[in-house]
Design a protein around this nucleic acid. Structure first.
Lengths: 123, 123, 123, 123
DNA sequence: GTGGTCTAGACCACT
DNA sequence: GTGGTCTAGACCACA
């Protein structure tokens, strides 16, 4: 749960994904407030605009809502929403791309399955 | 086989990957010439510097070679080289990322395997 | 008659307009007391400073008056006053803005008139 | 076609609406490039971030598209899209609000129609 | 040349 | 205290 400063991934996207994951795993509960822009900004030593940009995108995604003068809150139903949209996106776009890549490299499905199983067991 | 102008992927990388795929699937044979920078530039309406950048990277990767006054040619052994390096890259970086994504979404390996099989049968 | 927390409109303005409408439609009679700051604050779960700000603006507009130890009361003549000032504001600023918007969208006056009539009949 | 500096309306929204109007009236043709962020930034003496924010919203609305390294272009079909969405928004949200306001003030539809006609004739 | 990202610091309205 | 907006200036990748 730390910022990767020399990543090619913009910081505001890293922040956005951090919030997404925390909502998914429940450490940011629905209806509860998320840390304020200023809080995050000072905690991670990030400019407040960068944090605000991440939060704004989450509001646009329907995950957070603003309450005037009070801060940002996790929308009730956010977790369910995420589960649906993220999984859908994965199956419709990422999985086919993965399949195409596998095929282009001439790797058998058996090998893929075996390697995935091995990785899963390590955890 | 078209350029995605509004993709996150830079044009020169899209070009590079197009050549890689064509070498892999044999439509660019080893020892044969690839289309000239000027040709590609006019075919796809791309700045010639962008094409040159893509080709230069392919030269650096050891896939193409320049013959003065004649153009660029696919290096003999390029296909084999690609098969090795691409597969290695895939197993070491792409597959773990994929596995992590699958796990984060809570999708079972069985479902992944099933869907991949279905996709494979369609082609 | 509920607060919109995620509206662009500030809470204190929403409150102010609620009182204005109630005076206009007579549900807050002239000379009668309006609900206390404390009352509204707890009813709507709003910070009392926000309620006080709304009431203060209504006092400044000449709609409410404070009676020490008793609370806020609708000023006699408030309804008539509102009718004049609100209507003037409407005709001088809102109506021209509306007209401009309609014209920019290329909607005919006939269509506007027709739709307004339809809406009016429903009530 | 100038920026209102002391408006309560944020500059980036004013810019956004300026582009919308120009697309609607055809002075920004479909498929044609819009002035670059830097151009607008220096023309109007506005920070480039502010301009970029306006343009980004237009991209999100589907009105503009980016072409890497080349700039922003009006999406083909943007004008039609605007006409549909703007008019729909107007009829579904602005018109009912207007009707309610008129009724609350106790103004007759005849008077509204008459005043709108008068305004229309002036232009 | 284009847009994208980030910083450091400012002022504002709202609660 | 909260978020929203803006400035002035910097560096980056891309075409």
């Amino acid at each position: 749960m730390a910022i990767e400063w020399n990543d090619k991934q913009p910081i505001y996207l890293q922040l956005r994904e951090m919030v997404v994951e925390r909502v998914l795993d429940g450490s940011f509960a629905e209806g509860a407030p998320v840390p304020s822009v200023r809080q995050v900004s000072s905690d991670y030593q990030i400019n407040h605009l960068t944090v605000a940009k991440a939060y704004q995108e989450l509001v646009d995604m329907g995950l957070l809502e603003k309450r005037r003068g009070l801060g940002m809150f996790v929308v009730p139903g956010a977790r369910e929403l995420l589960n649906r949209t993220e999984k859908k996106k994965f199956i419709e776009t990422e999985l086919p791309a993965f399949a195409q890549r596998v095929q282009a490299l001439g790797i058998g499905l058996d090998e893929i399955a075996r390697r995935l199983r091995e990785m899963g067991e390590k955890h």
